[in-house]
Every structure is written in C-alpha cells, then in structure tokens.
C-alpha cells in the first residue's frame, strides 16, 4: 500500500478574471522511502499540488474542487483541523524555495527549531534544545552550540536552507516536501544542499517529494519523475527511463531546451509560444498549440494519463494511438 495516494486532485482559484484551474485532475502514489520529482515550468501547478496536500491553499480564492489524498487512512483534503495539526509539521514536513522569507526574522534559530518538538512531542525545553543541537550538527552547521542562539540574518543563504531542513526533519517526518529548495542558491551551495537531502533521507528513511524546474537536479536525486503541464501530469516514469525514452512531446521538448545538451553555436531549441491561460476553458490537449506533432484530434479530445509500459504513463493521444 502506498504511503500517500492522491486521486483526481483539482484545485481552482476563483478570481475576478475567472476560474483559474491551477491543478486539474492530478493522481499519483508515493511509496515509503521513495524520492519523487515533480517537474514543470512556472504555473504548471507543481507547487499548488503540494500546497493542497499540506492545507496551505488560501481559501478563498482557492478551493479544492475534488479529489482525495489518503495518508495513513486520513484524507488530507478533508481532514479536521485537529487531524491536520497532528500530521502537518510532524509526519509530513515541508521546506520552501526562499530561506530568506520562510524563517521568522524576530526569533532566534533555537526557538524556531525546537518549536515542533515542544508542540508535537511535548518535550521539555532542555530536552528539545539537546535534540535541536544534534539536528543542527547533523545538517552540517559547525559550532552549533553558539550558532543556535543566532538570528536568521546572521546566516548566509545556504546556511539558512540548512536550518530550514533541520527544522523540517527534527520530528523525523515520513514525507518531506521540498519546493524548489535550491533555486535561490548558488550552484556550489546547491550541490551541498542536494548531498545533505540525500544523506538525511538515507538516515531517516523518509519519502521525498522534490519540486523543481531543473531536469539536472532531478536526474541525480529522484527515483521517479512526473512532468506537469498546465495543471496536469503529462508523463510519469522511473528517472532513467524518462531521460532515455521520453514519450510525451512536452517532455521531449523540455529535455531538448536544456542548453548543456545542445551543440554550441547552433540555434537553441525552443518551444514556440507560451503555456495556455488556465482561466480560459481549454478544449483538447493543453500542449496542442505548441506541439510540433499536434493533429486535429489533439485540439478536441482531452487526453488521459495511460500506461505506456509498466511503471511508465503518459498522456499524449497520438503516442497512445501508436502514431508517433
């Protein structure tokens, strides 16, 4: 039985300019100890999917229209506030993109770090501080005994992201959701943080959902990848297979547009046009307007995710029909 099972999740935002379908029918499973990468461009719904699971969607304007997300018998989308409190920050933790804005600038690191322990595990302050120190050392902060008394502004960006990771992992969660945790960091620091996440995952045996737009990051870290476009999953498979044999035209286009895989001096491959406006009703496949292989049918029928091979699903009508 999967650790987390999401079925037909739909999260819409009801704005003055219409209904914005940020997530439109997303289903996936996450196994214990697995690392799942969610890849997509901005606005593809990858963050909203995870915010919905964590109950972090501002309602209104957001509304979860349908779906279930079963975690240990609890539907996260319909959990009571008490159920949510017992899971969020304890059994499912999250780290965010920007470590500058996600720490409270007025509180010392110590207070923010041990808060989950005081709330969830009802530890005494001394005991919690002891665990906090051990955790800071585990995420590679030297001189932790002194630095635990620091305020967030006294740390560099990479160090703040380490503190965020320490905070998220201090309750030994079963799932860690990482929302572009290295996007705001330099490449050398990104390499440090990715190593740290891998190490902590091995130690704690947790499952990780890693949201990113960088296919390079995914290739070294994730067991399985799902590619999102315009609020839907267009392809999902094991990492190696996805890079070796991408089936969906969008996944292929995304892979082709990485500069490092292209010959120098030649024109870079680009995907023409822009992602569709999700507040307008969409007939057919959302990628059809930009797809070099689109047929008339693609603009009328809405494709569904279907198995291509065991463990590899994709949502392109023409691939499913065996035409391309």
């Amino acid at each position: 039985m999967p650790l987390l099972s999401v079925k037909d999740l739909r999260t819409y935002f009801h704005t003055r300019n219409g209904i914005y379908r940020a997530v439109d029918g997303v289903s996936f499973d996450l196994d214990r100890g697995e690392t799942l990468g969610i890849v997509g461009e901005s606005g593809s719904g990858k963050s909203v999917t995870c915010y919905s699971l964590m109950g972090l969607i501002p309602q209104p304007p957001g509304r979860i229209e349908s779906g279930t997300a079963l975690f240990d018998g609890v539907d996260l989308l319909r959990a009571t506030p008490a159920q949510t409190r017992a899971i969020r920050g304890k059994r499912i933790a999250m780290i965010f993109q920007d470590p500058m804005t996600s720490l409270n600038p007025y509180l010392r690191i110590s207070e923010q770090l041990i808060e989950p322990l005081l709330i969830h595990e009802k530890l005494s302050k001394t005991e919690a501080m002891r665990r906090g120190l051990a955790m800071l050392e585990a995420v590679g902060i030297n001189d932790a005994a002194k630095r635990i008394r620091y305020y967030p502004h006294e740390f560099s960006g990479g160090m703040r992201q380490r503190v965020m990771i320490a905070m998220a992992l201090i309750t030994k969660p079963e799932i860690l959701i990482a929302d572009e945790p290295t996007t705001a960091l330099d490449v050398t620091v990104q390499a440090q943080i990715l190593e740290l996440i891998k190490k902590m995952q091995q130690e704690l045996g947790m499952a990780v959902i890693f949201i990113t737009h960088d296919l390079g990051v995914v290739s070294g870290l994730c067991d399985r990848v799902q590619v999102m476009y315009a609020g839907r999953i267009v392809e999902t498979s094991g990492t190696r297979e996805l890079f070796r044999e991408p089936r969906h035209p969008y996944t292929r286009a995304l892979q082709h547009s990485i500069p490092s895989l292209q010959a120098k001096g030649s024109e870079l491959f680009t995907i023409p046009g822009m992602p569709p406006d999700l507040s307008k009703p969409l007939a057919g496949c959302a990628f059809a307007a930009r797809c070099p292989q689109a047929a008339d049918r693609c603009r009328q029928e809405t494709p569904q995710l279907a198995p291509w091979k065991p463990g590899h699903q994709q949502a392109c009508l023409r691939v499913q029909a065996g035409e391309i």
Binding site: G158, Q190, A191, G216, S219, S260
Partner: peptide, 23 residues
C-alpha cells in the same frame, strides 16, 4: 562539477567536488 547534469547515468556515477563552506 557542481552543475547537475540532466542525464541520470552520468549524474549518479561521476565524482563531484563539493566545496566546503560559503564564499
């Protein structure tokens, strides 16, 4: 060496120089 390579076979087998500390 810090740039992640978008190829799982290369990415998992290469040795990466991870610099200690911050600039």
């Amino acid at each position: 060496s810090a740039i992640p390579v978008p190829d799982p076979d290369i990415e998992r087998n290469r040795r990466r120089i991870v610099l200690p500390g911050d600039p």
